[in-house]
Design a protein around this nucleic acid. Structure first.
Length: 256
DNA sequence: GCCACCGGTGGC
DNA sequence: GCCACCGGTGGC
């Protein structure tokens, strides 16, 4: 019979795809496609597969019949997906933007792992470094075009960056740089210093400091600090005045 | 009771 | 008109 269970390139090892040709009836000659999970569960439609995998997996561009990811096939779900790129329904970090992620043509997100324990490896290993996750060079480029919005889906106003901050990434806008710096501040506890090696621009594969955003090194002067202090001071004064006015208004309301 | 298999149909 | 999806059932 025409019964071939094959590996499926878009699915992890263990998943099988099967195509069964109909032998009789009005639909003889047509075929049905089934998938089998590693545990042996049979799937006969994309919705069924989707339900099983949960909403953390995007099957939008997965073609059930061929078993491949079709780049041109972005479903109507696309609009929705743009809004919650980094947070899945449960509020957990979605690996789609929790980096680094291997960019393969698989419906499953595959985190990058760093292998340091090759047998026979004579190189002295640095235990500190071995424990840290590798990061993909220029991953910040994937922040491009993403903007924050409020609950009404209205775009929020973005901040202006000080003129001293410039990007080392090719083809990078101010907005992307802002996202990259914000990500660095949010994701790590280390201070953001930017790329301190000038060689990073010429040969990023060797010299780029992946722990730092794609931002040229900058210096913070006493002047900068004073300006920032002034801003905070002004903000505090404004707040004080607002609270005072509010308190007066309430008091007046009560005495009426 | 299970499931391989084909029919029927809703949505495009 | 096509076909993805799923209901239904005959055979085991």
């Amino acid at each position: 019979m025409e019964r071939k269970r094959t590996d499926c390139p878009a699915l992890p090892p263990g998943w099988k795809k099967e195509e069964v040709i109909r032998k009789s009836g009005l639909s003889a000659g047509k075929s049905d496609v089934y998938y089998y999970s590693p545990s042996g569960k049979k799937f006969r439609s994309k919705p069924q597969l989707s339900r099983y995998l949960g909403n953390s997996v995007d099957l939008g561009s997965f073609d059930f019949r061929t078993g491949k990811m079709l780049p041109g096939k972005l479903s109507k779900n696309r609009q929705r997906q743009r809004h919650d790129v980094s947070l899945s329904k449960g509020g957990k970090l979605d690996l789609n933007t929790a980096l680094p992620i291997r960019q393969t043509a698989s419906i499953f997100k595959q985190p990058v792992t760093k292998v340091t324990g090759h047998p026979g490896n004579k190189v002295k290993s640095d235990l500190q470094r071995a424990s840290e996750q590798p990061r993909q060079l220029f991953w910040e480029k994937r922040l491009k075009g993403l903007r924050s919005s409020d609950v009404t889906e209205e775009f929020l106003r973005t901040m202006e960056l000080p003129p001293g901050l410039t990007s080392v990434a090719p083809d990078s806008s101010d907005a992307t740089l802002l996202s990259a710096i914000a990500s660095a501040l949010h994701a790590g506890s280390a201070p953001v210093t930017g790329q301190t090696s000038a060689a990073a621009e010429k040969n990023p594969a060797v010299w780029l400091n992946a722990a730092q955003p794609l931002c040229r090194a900058f210096t913070v002067t006493d002047q900068h600090i004073r300006e920032q202090e002034l801003k905070v001071d002004q903000a505090r004064k404004s707040l004080e005045e607002a609270l005072l006015a509010d308190g007066l208004a309430r008091a007046q309301e009560l005495s009426l």
